[in-house]
Structures are given as C-alpha cells and as structure tokens.
Write a protein that binds this DNA or RNA. Structure first.
Lengths: 202, 202
DNA sequence: ATAGTGTTTAACATTTTTGTTAAACAAAAT
DNA sequence: ATTTTGTTTAACAAAAATGTTAAACACTAT
C-alpha cells in the first residue's frame, strides 16, 4: 500500500496538526507543562492519537524540541552565509527575529528549560562553522572601526540580548511597566532602529 | 505556648528550609516543574511536611513566587531611590544584578512562566513610583547628552536586556557556542564594562 | 515525671496524568 | 462486496503526584 497521507479537512494531516498545536502552546503561549489532554483539546483531536503518532508524550516533546533547534539554526545560518554586507546582515537578522517572535515568542525560553532538564545540543559542527565565519567578519568590522573593539562573543551577546530579551520577557516587561498590548507593539516596532544605534553608535 | 521556632541542626527552621530549597531548585537550577517529592528530597525532609507547612503544592509555589517578586522590586527600589549620581546607579544595578544572578540565574524566566500561567502582579503602585522617578532622571541625562535621545522605556529595555539575557539564557549561549564554565564566567565578568560602554558610548 | 504543644512520620486515599488494547470506522484496492 | 490498510475512538490499566489522617516523636513548661 502506498503511504499516501490522509488529508484532514483542515488541510492538515493529524500528525502535523498535533505537532503544530504543541508548538503553538509551547513556543507561542509559553505553556511549557501542557498535558497531553490539553494539547489534544487544543488540537481538537482525541488524546490517544498523541500516543498513536508519537508513542509517548516524551517523544512528542523531543521532536518538537529538535524541530525548534533546527529552525533556529537554519534561520541564523541562512543570514550569516548570505552575501549581504555586514550591517545589512544584522538588520536582516533583526527583522527575521521579530517575524519569528511574533509567532513563537517563547522559543528561546523553552530551549533553556529543556537544556536544564538534560537535553543535548544537536548540530555542533554546523554551529561551529557559523560562529567562525561570523567571528571573522566581526574582527574585520572592528578593525575598520564600524563597531567598538571588544571580544566578538560580547558583540554577539549584546546583539542577541537586545533583540530577544524584550520578546521572550514580554509578560514581565509589559506587566511590570503597565503597558497595553498596543503600547508594547509600538515599542517593539521602534526597536530595530534603537538596536542598530546601540550596536553601531549613532 | 510561645511560638518559639524549632531550630534545626542545620540552623534553619524546616519551613524556611523547604522554601529555600524550592527557591534553589526553581531559580537556581531552573527545574520549574519539580515535584513535591523532589523538593522534599532536595531539602532532606519528609514530603508531607510540605503539606503541613504550606497546605498544598500550589500555596508553596505562590509564596515562593511572591517572595521573588518582592525581592526583585526591593532590589531595584533601593538603587533607584539612592542618592548616587545616575551613572553610578547603573553600575550599582549591574553589580547587584550579577550578584543576584550568581545565586538565582533563572528568576526572571520563572517569573515569566508564572505570568503565563495566569499569575498576577503585586505591588503596582510601588513600581509606578519607581518608574516615574527613573524616567525623570533619564530625561535629564538625555538632555545633558550623557545618553542618546530615545524613549526612556527603550533605554530601560536595553539595559535590562544586556544585563539579564546572558544570565538567564546561559545554558543556551554556553552550549550553542561550546564554552566551558570557566570561559563563560570570564565573559560575564567582562560584561560590566561592555554594558556601560554600550549604554553610554565609549 | 508528665501534660501539653508543635513537629515528623508512615500508611492510606484521591486525583491527575499517561499508556495500552481492542473494537469501530473510513477509504482504497482487489 | 469484502479485504486490506491505516485512522480514530472508548474503555480500561498503570503510573505518578498530591493530599489526608492518625499515631509516633521531641521538646518545654509545669
């Protein structure tokens, strides 16, 4: 028999539907301890289908986690190895991060909680290659004076912090500072320019 | 009968011991779904003592969460309302954050996960007062030219991001970039200067 | 010493969450 | 039509986590 996929009315095969729903709950809504029942409900399917497709809750989690890592890595990779000039690369990365963040704001936090529970990191070599390349570029820019001289790693930390923190910590910021959704959206929209100015000086 | 506290050999009353252990697990080790059994084991006490002292798991969580909020707020407050000049305040805040982070690196992440599960924010007025004061100072510094002109909130976000992200995302950074513990410690030690330069220009 | 108080423990009960099985179901191929 | 294959469901079983009770314990004050 051909392994033709049964296509659901909602144009999504059940397996995908479950996976995407789990992603949405974890990365989109930050519900890191969603039960199988909650995931099934959110997906509108019977709970035991999770076992049917993924054997166990743990397997589903593993897969979702693995996907997340891949996506993060690909995203970064495609930008770093692009032919854009340095500053444009950074802009691209910021834009791209914000797009991603709109859908999955809690991705990074989830990765951290998973690492804390003893997960391992996947594509080590790929990451190594990327970092090496980016370090080189950073060194060039520093000697050109585009950016302040510092350890390349420090620049990277600055950049990622400025981009990701206000996204993943949104509930904390927004509630602490009593901001409406609209106000916070506005703040995020303004950040690209702020970040560029902060990283490169004005 | 006097409510004299029974003092444990480890110079800590059991109730405190449990609370501190929970804090250590949550904020120190990032084990956000520690079971009552795990907490009890880590504290070296019988599991049912958690029920005895805190009624339920939820109550314990509530208390720990509330304590965390208080501590964060007090910390910030004492610095903001100090008589230090602006730049010194920031330095103080950085130092203070790093000290705190040594013990409880995952505090912020925990706060976020709790907010996501429908917790509320406590001392709203206190926070309001603090922000107002800090906004004023920021505006002064901007007109003096000490820092770039921008929305005060953006400066705050920059500052907190640069400080907190590399701490709470340590597992992510460290593993992604394949750094040893020693290497990462070194990086954190260097950050104070980096952050000051990034916020104020060199 | 012992009565009184608060603390700790172990045994039990309950609830919540997860996993398994067999039967019902739907679509396609023979 | 009925066999085959894969999907979905409901009923059940098992495991994990939480909560309750009563009895044992330890310290203090009388």
């Amino acid at each position: 028999m051909l392994n033709t996929m049964y296509i659901k009315n909602k144009d999504e095969a059940t397996e995908e539907l479950i996976k995407n729903t789990a992603k949405r709950l974890f990365f989109g809504e930050g519900k890191f301890n969603a039960t199988t029942q909650e995931i099934a409900d959110a997906a509108g399917v019977n709970r035991t289908l999770i076992n049917y497709y993924f054997r166990s809750r743990d397997k589903l989690f593993e897969i979702v986690f693995s996907d997340a890592q891949d996506k993060e890595q690909q995203r970064t990779e495609s930008i770093i190895f692009s032919e854009l000039p340095f500053k444009a690369k950074i802009e691209e990365f910021i834009d791209d991060s914000f797009v991603m963040a709109k859908e999955y704001p809690y991705m990074e936090i989830y990765l951290v909680t998973q690492f804390n529970q003893g997960c391992y990191f996947k594509d080590e070599e790929g990451m190594e290659r990327m970092l090496k390349k980016f370090y080189e570029e950073l060194n060039i820019e520093m000697s050109k004076g585009t950016i302040e001289k510092m350890e390349p790693i420090q620049f990277i930390i600055n950049m990622v912090s400025l981009i990701s923190f206000p996204i993943s910590m949104r509930p904390l910021f927004q509630r602490t500072m009593r901001l409406t959704d609209a106000e916070y959206e506005k703040i995020l929209d303004d950040r690209k320019e702020i970040i560029m100015n902060t990283l490169f000086g004005k």
